[in-house]
Design a protein around this nucleic acid. Structure first.
Lengths: 335, 335
DNA sequence: CTGAAAGCGCTTACAG
DNA sequence: CTGAAAGCGCTTACAG
């Protein structure tokens, strides 16, 4: 039903091999035949079957990307960054959400020859399937969220240091009672940012009491619920550090719900610097990630890995930068 | 290098055809052979090559989805809704962004046999390539954004009526000078919502002066810039209707930037009812779309279309509902 | 129940 | 420069 290279060969009165040659820009084709083939293709609207090409060439020109909860505004931005890079190198993107089993599905897809490699923007540490896929030689790179035990290329922010900087800043502007809205412990980003924040404070002789640390699940709703719990405490914090912007927005909204002003009554710091962070209604102080550069590096590493499996494993870390906006201020005087 | 059905056949001491049979659950296989094959698959970690299967079966179990600007918060929600439905019917999703040429790329992919069909969440009307793809029998359904001239299945909201309801509501609470932040005219959603709003007003004997209608490009930045222009006018509007939530957030932020209070000094209505609309810092009055139901219908129609090309074309419209929150109020008394 | 064989639509040595 | 042929890894009549 669909037109194939055999059809083209017939109308152009050449062999099917010749059709394939002009398709691939092989110079060993006479001008006449090339013209005839091109004309036939044009006339019939021929498009080569990508499955057949892929089967023959052992590559699909498509790579898998897995995100964790696409409604977290960080991921659309990550997808845009990755998508731009992928387009540059002429690769398609198939998308999975690990909230719906995408992690295993993506790995399975490599083994089925459906994608040439996969970029995880959010692995869970301790994923057995990832280890197995890696052992089988699947080209994988971790972007954004790393993993201590996975032996594959990784490109992440220096989350520890970024969070430590946030800690120093809050201390410096006068906060002494700070809360920490963390994320799931299977997420390396969450752990590193929590550890970094705690470490930064510790170096200043400060600590975060257990009652002031919560798991805000990386979500708006999580941030909102957690901040309300903290604010209900007899001695609430004057500032909170959230391990991502999404939960920071939730924290701000939760504080506003109970009538608190941010930043005069509560300072909030996020992490990621998504576009929304700059919006007037939030103007969130946060730590930026170099997403475009990181995405570029990730596809670069993936392509390299797809080329030769035995390349040495790399883990590139990009510096973050504290972006001070209007959700942070000196704490109110004790009344 | 990778293990194939031939390898399995060799170790299980059966023919390759038998391997294929157990793979496909064909009952005509003796229990002994089936067990031997299964054991061999298990031992080697065999996964059938999806490209070969696809080539042979003429289907890929993956469908293309194209969005327009994934950082517009509507699209992650749409993707999530579509993704959920696709997962139910065991289809993968490959993603394109029409901001980066995804529209043509997706259509090309159908013709190349890479995807079995495509869902457009955002066609531009008058796309020649879509017409051509349709003529060639590509299974396509339009979700969210329809097209007058495309002869394919469509599932949209009743945007005209939803916007008219917004108009009636604003009128009813007292507004008489209203602005309209529209979107690109190639977007059917933008046109229908603009037309519906204008129509609703007209029925009440009201009109929107030309100087109060702008194209906010569906973006936060667009909404922000446009509202500031409107507010700079000698006689600014007391309310604006925005054709999507993303630009409505921009309008709110733009108003706040110049020190205006929403809603007491400016009412804002959006369209889509994305999750953010309910967040404390916006609490946007908006028109909801039945995204899950619409996504469900869209994949249902696409599957049907993939089954039989000649099915009658359908256009299903889902009702929207005005969700009144806190960005709308009676206009301030004239001073 | 089972295997040999054709065929899906390509690419690429191989021989001329 | 060009064509016949093998082969990528499957599925499925076909014959037994």
């Amino acid at each position: 039903m669909n037109v194939t290279s055999v059809d083209i060969a017939r109308v152009a009165k050449v062999s099917q091999a010749t059709v394939s040659r002009v398709l691939n820009g092989n110079p060993n084709v006479s001008e006449e035949k090339r013209a005839a083939v091109l004309a036939a293709m044009e006339a019939t609207g021929y498009r080569p079957n990508a499955l057949a090409q892929g089967l023959r060439m052992r590559k699909t020109s498509t790579i898998g990307v897995v995100v964790a909860g696409i409604t977290n505004p960080f991921y659309p931005e990550a997808l845009e960054a990755v998508g731009k890079q992928l387009e540059r190198v002429d690769q398609r993107m198939v998308l999975w959400d690990s909230d719906r089993g995408g992690e295993d599905a993506a790995l399975d897809a490599v083994r089925q020859g459906l994608v040439d490699g996969v970029i995880f923007t959010s692995v869970s540490e301790g994923s057995g399937t990832l280890d197995e896929a890696l052992r089988l030689g699947a080209p994988v790179v971790l972007l954004n969220r790393g993993s201590a035990d996975a032996s594959c290329d990784q490109v992440t922010s220096n989350n520890f240091e970024g969070a430590a900087e946030a800690a120093r800043y809050l201390y410096q502007i006068g906060h002494r009672r700070m809360g920490l809205l963390g994320g799931p412990l299977v997420a390396r980003t969450a752990r590193d940012r929590m550890d970094g924040f705690l470490h930064g404070l510790r170096e200043l002789g400060q600590a975060v009491p257990d009652e002031l640390v919560r798991d805000a699940l990386f979500t708006h709703e999580g941030g909102r619920m957690c901040i309300r719990e903290l604010l209900d405490l007899p001695d609430p914090p004057t500032a909170v550090f959230c391990v991502n912007d999404f939960s920071a927005f939730g924290a701000i909204d939760g504080a506003r719900e109970v009538g608190l002003d941010v930043p005069s009554q509560l300072s909030v710091v996020g992490y990621d610097n998504v576009a929304m962070a700059a919006w007037r209604s939030y103007q969130l102080t946060t730590v930026s990630q170099q997403l475009d550069a990181m995405a570029g590096r990730a596809v670069e590493l993936l392509l390299r890995r797809m080329g030769r499996q035995e390349a040495p494993i790399r883990h590139d870390r990009f510096a973050g930068a504290l972006v001070i906006r209007n959700t942070t201020a000196a704490p109110a005087r004790q009344i």
